[in-house]
């Protein structure tokens, strides 16, 4: 029973972070058809902003808020400077641009901050654990569960209730028609990037609080995981990104928990085998639309 409870806690905390990241990718994909590989660098940037805030001595909550905002603003700047000029080019160009932005930022972090990781002194209030039934849950895990769930709920409200949210969901279905109906593409794309950056900022803060350090390449692994999540969930599906996040976490944690130690080197390969299995049953992802091939 404890093992199951512990498992669920681990899945929900990691899955929440994956869901936030994947949503960030999905929101941009729905308006631009672009998987933004520089998304991970927005996380890294938020991590450095959090560190800067702490070092400057501002209250922790203010540093967190600033870090999340930095993620959002940086995403909008990224869109206007890097992606807008190539917006109408083919998707491969956009993809290459996102790789270039990612590498550029990594090198900037390395050369202007440090190639080494920087410790982020999170207040000691956040180390320690609380008991839920017979299971111990670390405070940071509990925070990441609550924050990711709240963010997802807030986003759900935004998508259901606001005109922009509604428009982004519609864009995921058919952006061209939406534009014909009089929506300004630039505004919608900027909003999508802003949301995506804020989500990266939140995920970045949660990530750094768990890890205790921030380094120039920090965003690489999570963005790859988020990419897998988006593919499992179905490219362009927003609810798929959320469920995909929890599904990938469930697979990863199950393998970490129950895979015999001798098979440990195959853990990542097995994760991807399961992902391939899901995709061979659902070629468009779990929630992807079936699209008839145009001949």
């Amino acid at each position: 029973m404890d093992a199951i409870l512990t498992y669920i806690v681990n899945v929900v905390s990691l899955g929440g972070t994956y869901a936030l990241l994947a949503l960030g990718l999905a929101v941009v994909f729905s308006v631009l058809g672009l998987i933004n590989f520089a998304h991970g660098e927005l996380m890294t940037l938020a991590g450095y902003a959090l560190l800067a805030g702490i070092l400057l001595g501002v209250p922790f909550w203010a540093a967190v808020l600033a870090a999340v905002l930095v993620g959002g603003v940086a995403a909008v700047i990224m869109e206007t400077t890097a992606f807008r000029p190539v917006r109408n080019a083919n998707p491969a160009t956009l993809l290459m641009t996102s790789f270039a932005v990612a590498m550029l930022l990594q090198v900037i972090f390395q050369n202007f901050i440090s190639a080494r990781g920087q410790a982020v002194p999170v207040p000691s209030l956040f180390t320690g654990s609380i008991a839920i039934g017979n299971a111990q849950v670390s405070i940071i895990q509990a925070i990441s569960i609550v924050v990711s769930l709240l963010s997802l709920i807030a986003l759900k409200v935004f998508f259901d209730r606001s005109r922009s949210g509604w428009a982004i969901r519609a864009a995921a279905d058919d952006f061209e028609t939406l534009r014909l109906m009089g929506f300004r593409a630039s505004r919608l794309i900027a909003i999508a990037f802003l949301i995506s950056g804020l989500l990266a900022g939140i995920a970045g803060v949660l990530w750094v609080m768990q890890r205790g350090s921030v380094d120039p390449l920090m965003g690489l692994k999570p963005v790859l995981a988020a990419f897998v999540v988006v593919v499992i969930g179905g490219l362009g599906s927003i609810s798929g990104a959320v469920l995909g996040g929890y599904l990938l976490a469930a697979i990863e944690i199950a393998l970490q928990t129950w895979l015999p130690e001798g098979l440990a080197p195959y853990r990542d390969s097995l994760t991807f085998v399961l992902v391939i299995a899901v995709l061979s049953l659902f070629p468009n992802g779990l929630f992807g639309k079936r699209v008839a091939e145009k001949v």
Binding site: G117, A119, T127, S129, S138, I140, R211, G212, S213, D215
Partner: peptide, 15 residues
């Protein structure tokens, strides 16, 4: 790093 700090935080966090 970055694994060592993460590991250390996780075990100390778990008591």
């Amino acid at each position: 790093e970055p694994d060592f700090p993460t590991f250390l935080k996780a075990i100390r966090g778990a008591g």
